[in-house]
């Protein structure tokens, strides 16, 4: 649980770190809109090239970004295959007839099961998964086996392939951009920036300060709660709760034995926190001064202008090309 990369601040120094959080949030919004405006795969490739350039300038290691993308790998693969199989527009690139017979299906299933049980011993899991898929496809395309009861068609079309790549690139860009924001901005700064950006919502009677306070308190208590959960699990384990093994019925009791103390401790904690805040005269909605005041620098204006320029370029490229 301690290796979550998404949303984690990693200390460093580069221009990305010295930017005002407001700039970073606004730039992220602008660039995201830009990414959604782009509708051609070549433009998407340019966009990702620009992102790479920013990563280089911002001294952020690609490996970190990859680690951030890893939890999304399944989603990426899923959308990719979905597009390839079901999008049937444009030129036909590849076609293969599949023969379903009892033997070939059994063999394909056997390969799948073999993959399932051996995957934990293989280092390059993604590669191994793709190889398994390829093997299953090959088995199904063979005509050797008797008793074919149905045939299917596996075809890849130009549009499908492009669309698949396009959506994948878009997802990668969006995740990379947001990872860049959270990685280079402390949660407190992020919160302060968000609060000031949302401040105009006061006209709609939405108190941005309160929302920001709620967000910052929840963020603050995530590690505490994880720590607490760990302690509860140890305490229950010493009473014979085996959190790793156990049947379904036991699992329910295990979870209850974890959740009930968790809830009670959280309520108690929030009560204490409310009292502590009140003891220091905290009153929501009152004007307050800040320890850290955000300062807008020339670099911020430059970055914001550049982001705007990129958005305009994206719009122009869509309209004109």
């Amino acid at each position: 649980m301690k290796n979550i990369v998404i949303g984690r601040y990693i200390p460093g120094n580069s221009f990305l770190y010295s930017l005002d959080p407001r700039t970073k949030i606004l730039a992220l919004l602008i660039l995201m809109i830009g990414v959604f405006v782009i509708d051609h795969i070549m433009h998407m490739v340019y966009a990702i090239a620009i992102i790479f350039l920013v990563l280089l300038l911002g001294k952020i290691s690609i490996k970190r970004i990859y680690l951030g993308l890893r939890p999304l790998l399944f989603l990426l693969i899923f959308t990719f295959t979905f597009q390839i199989i079901f999008n049937r527009h444009g030129e036909l690139l590849f076609e293969e007839t599949l023969y379903y017979s009892p033997v070939s299906i059994a063999l394909a299933a056997a390969i799948g099961i073999f993959w399932f049980f051996t995957k934990r011993f293989i280092k390059f899991r993604l590669l191994y998964f793709l190889m398994t898929l390829l093997a299953i496809g090959t088995v199904l395309s063979l005509t050797l086996f008797p008793g074919t009861f149905a045939t299917g068609r596996f075809a890849v079309y130009e549009e499908g392939l492009f669309m698949a790549l396009f959506i994948m690139l878009r997802l990668i860009i969006i995740v990379t951009l947001s990872t860049m924001l959270t990685m280079t901005t402390k949660p407190t700064d992020l919160n302060l920036g968000l609060e000031q950006i949302l401040a105009p919502l006061k006209i709609l009677r939405i108190n941005a300060e309160e929302i920001a306070m709620i967000i910052s308190i929840s963020l603050r208590y995530i590690p505490t709660l994880l720590d607490e959960a760990n302690k509860i699990m140890l305490a229950q384990a010493s009473r014979g709760v085996d959190f790793e093994e156990g049947k379904m019925k036991e699992k329910v009791v295990q979870i209850v034995s974890l959740l009930v103390p968790m809830f009670i401790i959280s309520f108690k904690r929030s009560d204490d926190l409310a009292n502590a805040m009140e003891a220091r005269s905290f009153a929501p909605g009152r004007p307050r001064t800040r320890l850290h005041v955000l300062t807008w620098k020339r670099l911020d204006s430059c970055v914001l202008a550049l982001s705007f320029l990129l958005l305009v370029t994206a719009i122009l490229s869509r309209v004109l090309l």
């Binding site: 009473r239 009930v260 108690k268």
Partner: peptide, 22 residues
């Protein structure tokens, strides 16, 4: 090795009862 039976033989009471009462 199942570690669970060890906890029957060596009983450990934690400092804060809030962590186990449910």
């Amino acid at each position: 090795i199942k570690l669970n039976p060890i906890r029957k033989q060596v009983g450990l009471v934690f400092q804060f009862p809030e962590y186990q009462l449910f």
